[in-house]
Simulated scan of single mutants.
Amino acid sequence: MAYSQHGHDQLFALFIALMYPVLLVKCHPQCLDFKPPFRPQNGLSFCTMYSQFGCCDSTKDQEIMNRFYSIVDSFDYSLYATCAAYIQDMLCALYRIILEVDEPASNHNGGQLLFGNDGYLYIFTGDGGMAGDPFGKYGNALNKSALLGKVLRIDINNNNRGPLYKIPPDNPFIQDPDARPEVYAYGVRNMWRCSVDRGDPQTKEGNGRIFCGDVGQNKFEEIDIVEKGRNYGWKAREGFSCYDKKLCGNSSLNGVLPIFAYPHSVGKSVTGGYVYRGCESPNLNGLYIFGDFMSG
């Protein structure tokens, strides 16, 4: 099939617009505080979808519009009609900041974003870094008022106007005045790679379970199944072993044990995997397969 030079130029320009949008324009900054929505002082004429929220300004709006026309000026009518709206959307909203969490240290950044079978977004955050979760009396992970060391669960559907996310009505700590309503589970150190079990192909048994590898401190790595409201024990416990002996003896923490743990003589940094549900190796069906960054 032959292409004209003009058509090639148009497709190349479209490719650049689609594949390298970060090079074209800086993103609109978004406000985390959305009560009430912050609006541009002078209104927007091009990125009108941001007129009701966000910290956009007319200068940035004009820059984006100019960039848009520099891309589409070489398009013929057909390509413009097909692609212009998509390019506008991409330039105006390369990404949106839904939630920001300050971290006191550079490590333990968490290892997964995923959607559960319920349609909600699950966010897995590290405990804030350093060693031994030294933040506050109990650390971040056991503190339900902190977003660090947690599994968060939020609803980002239909968020074009108003709040950037909503709290699912069955989140476990909505009625707890000392907890953040986003918290779904807590007491995790640095969950690194999580996955949703597709369930048995025939019976659907196991469908929707969330498996995670949680990286340990000095002695043990662990695998957990994430369930609503559960406390996975860190920093009271590392794997099946006590880490902070005083906290470990506190029965009120009501921690749940991992489904599997292994010592650092085997591996030193768990990488979570998947429950095998394929056809090529039926003997593996239903088994959780994971790795270790240090030992493979």
Rank of each mutant, 00 (worst) to 15 (best):
E222A: 00
N250A: 08
N218Y: 02
C194P: 10
R193P: 13
N231R: 03
F220K: 01
G273I: 11
D178M: 13
M191Q: 13
D214F: 01
D244P: 03
V275K: 07
K268L: 10
S241H: 13
S265H: 05
C242F: 03
K219N: 07
L257A: 11
R237G: 00
C279N: 04
T271Q: 04
Y262T: 06
G272K: 06
K204P: 11
G199M: 15
R189T: 03
H264L: 03
R189V: 03
Q175N: 15
Y274Q: 10
Y276S: 12
G187A: 04
D214C: 11
R193W: 12
A185F: 08
K228V: 01
N254V: 11
G216E: 01
K245H: 01
Y243F: 15
G229C: 07
K245A: 08
I259S: 05
N231G: 01
P181H: 02
F240C: 05
G216V: 02
A185H: 02
K235V: 01
D214Y: 05
W234S: 04
I174L: 15
R189K: 06
G278F: 00
P201N: 09
E238G: 05
G278N: 03
N250I: 07
D197T: 13
K204C: 14
E221D: 01
P258S: 09
S252D: 12
G249V: 11
S252C: 09
R277Q: 11
G206N: 12
K235F: 03
L253V: 11
D176A: 12
G273N: 10
Q175P: 04
L247M: 12
P172A: 13
E238D: 06
W192P: 09
C212A: 08
V266F: 09
S281H: 12
R209T: 12
F211I: 12
R209M: 14
P181E: 08
N207A: 13
P181M: 09
N190L: 10
S241Y: 07
G208I: 15
R180P: 06
W234Q: 01
R209C: 15
E222R: 02
G278K: 07
T203S: 14
F173S: 03
N190F: 04
G208E: 14
R198C: 13
K219D: 04
V266Y: 09
A261H: 07
Y184M: 08
D197I: 14
Y186W: 06
I225M: 01
K245D: 06
G255H: 01
K228H: 06
Q217M: 02
N254T: 07
K245F: 12
E205A: 15
Y243C: 04
V256Q: 06
S281E: 09
A179W: 06
V266P: 00
F173C: 14
E227T: 07
A179D: 08
I259M: 10
K228W: 01
C242D: 11
